[in-house]
C-alpha cells in the first residue's frame, strides 16, 4: 500500500508508479479471469447468448405459417424432442398454459404480434425478449416436473401487470397422454 509522502520526490514518484502499475496489472488479471470463466462455461455447457436471428411479419402471424393458432403450444417432433411455439400479444401469451415433458430436449419459438414483450420462467434460467418482427429461438431441458410462472417481463402497455402465463412440466408419459392426434398440446382449459 501507499506510504506517507516521502522525502525525495523523484524516488517517491518511481515507487508510487511501480505500486500503481502492479495494481493495474493485478486488476487486468482479475478481469481476464472473469472473462475466462465466461468463456469456459460457454464452451463447457455450450451456452451462448440466446440469439438466432430470424424475421417474421407480426401482422400476419394468425393468417399463415407456424404461428397460426392451431399450431401453437407444444409440438412433438419425430425425433422425440418438443417444439414450443408461443405468441405474445397485449396482454397474454398464447397458449396461456404451456405444458412440456421433463427430461426432454425442448426448443422454444416465440414471437410477438404487436409490441416488445419479454418472458421468463420462474425457477429456471429461461429468459428472453419477445420482439415483433423477430422470432426468439432457444433450446432448453427441464429436469424435474413442477409448476412455474411465466410473467411478461418487459413493459408492454397498460395491462402489462396482468400478463402472466403458466408452465407445467410433467413426466414424459403423462405428456404423451396429453398429446392429441395433431401432436400438439397445451394446458389451456
Amino acid at each position: 500500500m501507499a506510504r506517507a509522502v516521502p522525502a525525495d520526490p523523484h524516488d517517491g514518484e518511481a515507487v508510487a508508479k511501480r505500486i500503481e502499475n502492479r495494481w493495474a496489472l493485478t486488476m487486468v488479471g482479475l478481469v481476464a479471469l472473469l472473462v475466462a470463466m465466461v468463456i469456459f462455461t460457454g464452451l463447457h455447457w455450450a451456452t451462448m447468448p440466446p440469439s438466432r436471428v430470424e424475421t417474421i411479419n407480426p401482422s400476419t402471424l394468425h393468417v399463415s405459417g407456424e404461428f397460426v393458432e392451431s399450431n401453437l403450444g407444444s409440438a412433438v417432433e419425430t425425433d422425440g424432442s418438443v417444439t414450443v411455439r408461443i405468441v405474445g400479444q397485449q396482454y397474454s401469451f398464447t397458449p396461456q398454459c404451456i405444458v412440456v415433458p421433463s427430461r426432454t430436449p425442448v426448443t422454444f419459438r416465440v414471437t410477438s404480434a404487436d409490441v416488445i414483450h419479454g418472458m421468463l420462467i420462474t425457477g429456471t434460467n429461461i429468459n428472453s425478449m419477445v420482439s415483433p418482427g423477430y422470432i426468439s429461438t432457444f433450446k432448453t431441458r427441464f429436469e424435474k416436473p413442477g409448476d412455474h410462472l411465466m410473467p411478461c417481463h418487459e413493459f408492454c402497455g397498460t395491462g402489462h401487470e396482468g400478463m402472466w402465463a403458466n408452465v407445467k412440466v410433467v413426466e414424459p408419459d403423462a405428456f404423451a397422454r396429453l398429446v392429441g392426434p395433431t401432436r400438439r398440446a397445451s394446458c389451456d382449459l
Partner: peptide, 13 residues
C-alpha cells in the same frame, strides 16, 4: 440486449 432476438450472439459476446 443479451436476451434480444435481433442481435447476433457474436456481438453479444
Amino acid at each position: 440486449l443479451f436476451a434480444d432476438p435481433e442481435v447476433g450472439a457474436g456481438f453479444k459476446v
